[in-house]
Design a protein around this nucleic acid. Structure first.
Lengths: 344, 344
DNA sequence: TTGGTCTTTGCATTCGCAGTCATTTCCGTT
DNA sequence: AACGGAAATGACTGCGAATGCAAAGACCAA
């Protein structure tokens, strides 16, 4: 009884060119083909040449799925991101994807409507046996533990493991907001307002708290409203704050650039306030529109390249050596002194 | 000799909970576990319940890699996108990803530095045996043929198969530019300039040609320069065009919004021209900053939701029935009459 | 020529699951 | 009680590549 694929049945139709097909054409065994495609394997140069030639003639590409099954390395990394439309993440995503692909790792993308929708995608993450994950969304303790239990290396991006030690890369909210607050206070502002993010957003809370705390240090209490990180929230938030402060607001801290931009436009065009003469506005992130002529936003720019670079490096390290202990890397942002705020 | 996994060796460590582990715990065969997880399979309700319970206790998730190997369906779709940082694509990407995931399909993301870098990633696309691909980058005829030879369903996004019939979803450049040109001409503009995209960009060429042709219809010849689709290119292009036209330029057509925005800022703040009084500026895409108060760009908005919806539907159709003949779906954009241009 | 070492090569097995086929169990009927 | 048909279940194989092991060559020295 002929078991195993007998090497005698033509099969190079469309989809399925297998290593057996290549082997037959090159007159070698399937093992040889496998070895010809792996780096340090023992194959005679002449043999390898024949195999490569046959492979090319047939259009053979090793089946990564089958490789993954046997080697238990899918070369897949999950990237879980919440607000893809939020201007800041596309840059991060592009950087991460390109860096990872330089290392032969492919990206399985999960994009969330809201930051708290993670649970639904985790099942899929497990199923695909990804080699690791980079997550820019809030994970519960249970979820963090799940990663560790399943042995999936994890790097958080602009998030930290609350209560659980996890590798993470962040831009320092405290430092950033502190620089902004210090500048604003010392320039003589007195009536502060803050537009935060949705309650389930990690960075939103971080930054808002950082600003509130630093203001408290000066004995200043700011009004606080929440936004959705988008343009409209900026304008809406500003209006609310104006009411709350009896129109006295003279310093507005937004936890991201987009809301700051929205607020600037509203201040200038709707409310009729001069920015920064009547009202100083600050943002956070350093997205590209922040530097446009029309805005010249005073903000904190995250060092995206260094951060993504670090995230990828950390992840790959942990994939190689799963037992490396968690490390937090905190990057200082760069204060961008634009024309939207009077700083000292 | 005990071949096959003997069901008697504990194995629920971290990574590898397999269907055998679940089977053993539930006191059934591996086949039963497999069936319990597939829809219309024949399993007694009581058995299924036991299996599900065991699976949960062990944290079992079917291995999608193994499933893919045997069923020849990876449930993976490749998305190949060129300028992720270009403001327009993030929205598209987010939409596509979310729609696909509603259909149980995962996204393998490939992001290109330049539109012509496709070749390098195609190898990876083949290796992962994706069920289909959505491509927003220029493919050569050979590359298009490769998809068809390998039986990988393909939908082009804002591109068409030049010379080869391929399924595609586009926003109509001709209609869009025509509406803009008509409006500008009828409003009395006489000296036209166009800022195009990089020569290897498909939409860039399409739109520029559309504008040029429509202008020719009126007997008008426009000056033409190229940009890189980014903010800076807008300002730079405008300056060049001003020189070329002896400062007489009164209508500027940019092939995307970002360059139009850059041009607006430069016109107002650097060159000192009033927009739209001295100079009308138009864009294309309808990205969110186009609607910001500071710009109110006159542009053509692509119906992103309908387009992504169509792309996903077409792709899934073709995955189910690979022999459906190619179809082109051309969507009309919506003319957004902002305050950046005087139209009729 | 012979023996020993090192390199190439092929065989057989394995990864985790789906699905075919054969067998068993369960029920309703008469 | 005996039978028939449907439903449930299990044994087994194979998807495509990687790899341990053993066998076969290649090469050199004696």
């Amino acid at each position: 009884m002929a078991k195993k694929k007998p090497l005698d049945q033509t099969n190079q139709e469309k989809t399925g060119v297998t290593s057996y097909d290549v082997a037959r054409r090159a007159g070698v065994s399937q093992s040889a083909v496998s070895r010809a495609f792996r780096k340090g394997a023992s194959v005679a140069p002449a043999t390898r040449a024949r195999i490569v030639e046959a492979a090319q003639a047939l259009g053979y590409e090793p089946n990564a799925i089958a490789q993954g099954l046997i080697t238990k390395r899918s070369n897949l990394v999950a990237i879980i991101i919440s607000n893809l439309t939020n201007l800041y993440y596309p840059e991060v995503l592009a950087e991460l994807t390109q860096r990872l692909s330089q290392h032969g790792v492919r990206v399985l993308l999960f994009s969330l409507a809201a930051e708290s929708d993670v649970e639904e995608v985790l099942g899929q993450v497990w199923r695909y046996r990804v080699d690791g994950a980079i997550v820019a969304a809030r994970l519960s303790t249970d979820q963090l533990v799940a990663f560790s239990n399943r042995g999936v290396p994890l790097v958080l991006y602009n998030r930290v493991g609350e209560g659980v030690p996890v590798a993470s890369v962040c831009c320092d909210s405290d430092l950033g907001e502190r620089a902004l607050v210090d500048g604003l206070v010392q320039a003589g502002h007195t009536c502060f307002g803050i537009i935060g993010g949705p309650a389930d957003s990690y960075v939103g809370e971080e930054r808002a708290n950082a600003a509130i705390n630093r203001l408290a240090h000066y004995g200043i209490k700011a009004e606080f409203v929440r936004g959705q990180f988008d343009y409209e929230s900026g304008g809406a938030g500003l209006k609310t704050l104006m009411e709350l402060t009896d129109n006295k607001l003279d310093a507005l801290i937004c936890v991201n650039d987009l809301m700051a931009i929205g607020a600037m436009d509203t201040a200038r065009n709707i409310i009729g306030k001069k920015v920064p003469n009547d009202l100083s506005i600050t943002g956070f992130d350093g997205v590209s529109p922040a530097t446009w002529e029309a805005y010249q936003l005073t903000t904190v720019r995250q060092p995206v390249r260094r951060m993504t670079q670090a995230a990828v490096a950390m992840l790959l390290e942990r994939i190689e050596s799963p037992d490396i202990s968690p490390e937090q890397r905190l990057f200082a942002g760069e204060l961008l002194s634009g024309r939207s705020a009077r700083l000292l």
